[in-house]
């Protein structure tokens, strides 16, 4: 309808604003907290107007936490680096393994293919702690406990099924005739995979990769059990802010802001790939 009344527009705007406020408020509040000291945060009643300070951020970046009880070393920047490294390499490995596997499951129905695909998905059904206890034992025997390789391996439990199942759906949506046409034109199956299937499933691969990255980034329990301080990601590292002399709300807020930023930036960047149409009007109109 072209003639939307002013009233309708206003009501719509109001509704949208309410939804945005409802979902964004906690993030907004944390953002404000990250610029306050513990004293101003804990003031009753809480105040929106305060004198901003960068002390939380400087503490995180320098790694020196000064509190009433003295100074404390924290490894937040190291944790952030671990998070980035673990998430990126895990997703990269999962893509390298998962995308060709997804293509195989989508295009070649072999004996037991459904069973294998389902088994891979079932990794996500199991409660992580249940898997972790025996895994810790095995990793200690294998010498994989507290190593990046071990962690990246375990992270495949999170990333691989996700990528496999999402990307498989995208491959299945590509008309088989489009791939046949490329084969018949004289190209090998591998060239067909690389130049037809991969580009056409691109938005799906980006979406799956992004989701896997977020899941890997937010993982807590695997790293908590399997990694010691120097290999821990931010999710586990944040525990360090709960000190004997109290909880450092300001630093936690600043840490959250810093650790949310990469995923947020990635999501915003990938957004345009995610909404891009899949088949782009290839088949009949």
């Amino acid at each position: 309808m072209e003639t939307t009344s002013t009233l309708e527009k206003t009501l719509r705007l109001l509704a949208l604003t309410l939804v945005v406020i409802f979902f964004m408020f906690p993030i907004f509040w944390i953002f404000l907290m990250s610029f306050q000291t513990n004293e101003t945060i804990l003031r009753i009643p809480p105040q929106v107007i305060f004198e901003p300070t960068l002390s939380n951020y400087t503490a995180l970046i320098t790694g020196k936490l000064t509190s009433a009880a003295g100074t404390l070393d924290i490894a937040f920047m190291k944790n952030l680096g671990n998070s980035v490294f673990l998430s990126v390499t895990s997703v990269a490995l999962a893509l390298v393994l998962g995308v060709p596997a997804a293509y195989a499951f989508a295009r070649h129905k072999f004996k037991g293919s459904e069973d294998i695909a389902f088994t891979l998905l079932s990794f996500r059904f199991a409660p992580p702690l249940l898997v972790l206890l025996p895994l810790t034992q095995y990793f200690q025997w294998l010498g994989l406990a507290n190593t990046y390789i071990g962690l990246i391996w375990v992270y495949q439990l999170i990333c691989l099924p996700l990528i496999l199942w999402i990307v498989r759906g995208y491959f299945e949506d590509i008309s088989a005739d489009v791939e046949y046409a490329y084969r018949i034109a004289g190209h090998s199956w591998f060239a067909t995979f690389r130049r037809i299937a991969l580009p056409l499933a691109g938005p799906g691969i980006a979406a799956a990769g992004l989701l896997a990255f977020i899941f890997a980034w937010n993982n807590f329990v695997f790293a908590l059990v399997l990694a010691s301080a120097d290999k821990q990601p931010v999710t586990v590292g944040a525990l360090a802010f709960v000190t004997s002399s109290g909880i450092q709300y300001g630093q936690i807020a600043a840490a959250i802001v810093l650790s949310v930023t990469p995923t947020l930036a990635l999501a915003l960047y990938a957004q345009r790939y995610l909404v891009e149409g899949l088949s782009l009007g290839a088949v009949k109109g």
Binding site: Y180, R183, I184, W189, L200, A282, V283
Partner: peptide
Amino acid sequence: VDAEHRGIGMAFQNFALFPH
């Protein structure tokens, strides 16, 4: 013999053009 070595041209009912 694999499809790419048969030296055939084919047009499809749904066109099957490469959208990209």
